[in-house]
């Protein structure tokens, strides 16, 4: 249990039987009432966003979360397949709520998995990661109608807007949360 007043950004709570991670926290004192902590939370299972306010004096249940490194093998209809490189144990992370991450996951790369009640429920991507551009349209000289950016395809299949000077075979740093191009990386 944790006292609601001690909750901070990143705390994992068990709400309605599901694990949630706190993404925003603010203390509020309503006009003539007890103090509350106003939270924005993200379900670690489905990615669904929840807003809750809890009295700062109330105790709430913490979700016991474990982290584990594993190599990404491949994704299919069952989910994302990983292998723990120390024990060679294989497991599947369900797709539910993680679809948007597929586009930024590279096969054979090692990621951190979030384990709850012995089951992997979430995959932590690095905030920014480097990807190879596998398809980049040539921009016709003088064609300014499309502005200063163009759309390219990354090795993982993700479509990203980049500056026109990016060529096929280049490596680019991309923000995995927003899908935004950060910079070109010399490879």
């Amino acid at each position: 249990m944790i006292r609601a007043g001690a909750i901070s950004k990143g705390t994992c709570l068990l709400l309605k039987g599901d694990p949630y991670q706190v993404t925003e926290r603010e203390f509020v004192n309503p006009g003539k009432g007890q103090a509350f902590v106003r939270l924005k939370l993200k379900s670690l299972r489905t990615g669904q966003v929840l807003r809750e306010s809890i009295k700062t004096s109330e105790d709430v249940e913490e979700a016991e979360i474990e982290e584990r490194s594993a190599q990404y093998l491949y994704g299919d209809a069952d989910g994302f397949h990983f292998m723990d490189m120390e024990t060679y144990e294989q497991f599947v992370v369900p797709r539910e709520g993680l679809e948007h991450k597929t586009a930024y996951m590279k096969e054979a790369e090692t990621y951190t998995l979030i384990i709850w009640e012995e089951k992997p429920i979430d995959i932590e991507l690095p905030y920014k990661a480097v990807y190879k551009v596998i398809e980049a349209p040539e921009v016709v000289r003088g064609d300014t109608a499309t502005g200063v950016t163009k759309q390219v395809t990354l090795e993982t299949g993700a479509q990203v807007k980049v500056p026109v000077f990016i060529k096929e075979g280049d490596s680019v740093l991309v923000n995995t949360e927003t899908g935004e191009y950060v910079e070109r990386v010399s490879s």
């Binding site: 509020v28 309503p30 009432g33 007890q34 509350f36 106003r38 807003r51 809750e52 306010s53 009295k55």
Partner: peptide, 12 residues
């Protein structure tokens, strides 16, 4: 009642 009232007020 009062706590529920305030909870709704600050949440929604």
């Amino acid at each position: 009642w009062k706590t529920l009232f305030h909870r709704i007020l600050v949440t929604s």
